[in-house]
Design a protein around this nucleic acid. Structure first.
Length: 265
DNA sequence: ATTGCTTCCTGAGCGC
DNA sequence: TGCGCTCAGGAAGCAA
């Protein structure tokens, strides 16, 4: 399930596409490519000027428009690839003018490729909160948010309008490392806890990027290699915490939460 | 306005 | 062997 470190890894892996030109987006499953009419098909779709990341979104800045890809849980990009690699779960592929292709596979089909004008605002991206690895995400910012919200800290950190790019794995890992219970109401978080949490989130994300992400189930790099951060997980998916206490599993907002009631108060 | 629940989808894993 | 059930999950959309 790609979160910030996984998407960042994919963006870095795709840097070799910069300067190449897309001639066609071939949609194999309906509703995979949104606003395809944005493209002027009489022209080349466009040269890839840059590939960037915002939250969990991949942004292809083309000279004609912006192509936004969200992988959701099971979306994968494969490059280099050839047509023999197109399979049952291939939802679309990009055809380049040099004959190469970039395959978009997605088992659960929640992923999307969306095209918008260079100056248009994307309805969700426009509401994203700050990037967690920038100075805009600091203790003052998170304190202010926490004081005004009537929910638990895990739900706060999962909210993309508050901070963009965190998902279940990195939120739970960060909370465990800070010894903060995910059930703690945001309002009662102390200044010290919030400071520690902000710092730990940055440490965990940087380490996960260095490891090229977490390959627990579906996530793979564009060459199908796994990330390595699953080797450093302390709480997500575990039966015992690193101190051998039993890990408790609950649901918060319909999502699995793993935590150690002994370590996290 | 804010919070929370349901929905989308497929494959894996389980019990019987 | 195979059926039916549950679960995984981001975020849109809707309900309270």
């Amino acid at each position: 399930m790609p979160e910030l470190p996984e998407v960042e890894t994919i963006v870095r892996d795709l840097i070799c596409l910069q300067g190449k030109t897309i001639s066609e987006i071939v949609e194999l499953r309906p509703n995979t490519v949104i606003n395809k009419t944005q493209l002027d098909l009489t022209e080349k779709i466009g040269t890839i000027k840059s590939i960037e990341r915002r939250g969990k979104y991949l942004l292809f800045v083309l000279d004609s428009c912006l192509m936004i890809i969200h992988l959701r849980m099971t979306g994968k990009l494969i490059y280099p690839a050839d047509k023999n690699s197109i399979g049952k779960h291939t939802r679309a592929y990009l055809l380049l003018t040099n004959g190469e292709i970039v395959i978009f596979n997605d088992i659960r089909t929640f992923g999307k490729i969306e095209l918008i004008g260079l100056d248009d605002k994307h309805n969700t991206m426009a509401t994203l909160g700050p990037e967690p690895l920038t100075e805009g995400f600091d203790k003052a910012y998170l304190s202010n948010i926490c004081s005004s919200k009537n929910t638990n800290i895990k739900t706060i950190l999962m909210d993309q309008t508050i901070v963009a790019g965190l998902g279940n794995i990195y939120v739970l890992e960060s909370l465990y490392r800070c010894r903060i219970s995910p059930e703690t109401m945001a309002k009662v978080m102390t200044a010290r806890q919030i400071d520690k949490l902000v710092k730990e989130i940055k440490i965990v994300l940087l380490k996960a990027i260095e490891c090229n992400g977490t390959s627990i189930s579906d996530y793979r790099r564009i060459d199908d290699k796994k990330g390595e951060f699953q080797n450093f997980l302390q709480i997500y998916g575990k039966k015992l915490c690193p101190l051998d206490h039993p890990v408790k599993r609950i649901k918060q907002g319909g999502r699995s939460t793993y935590f150690c009631p002994e370590c996290q108060k």
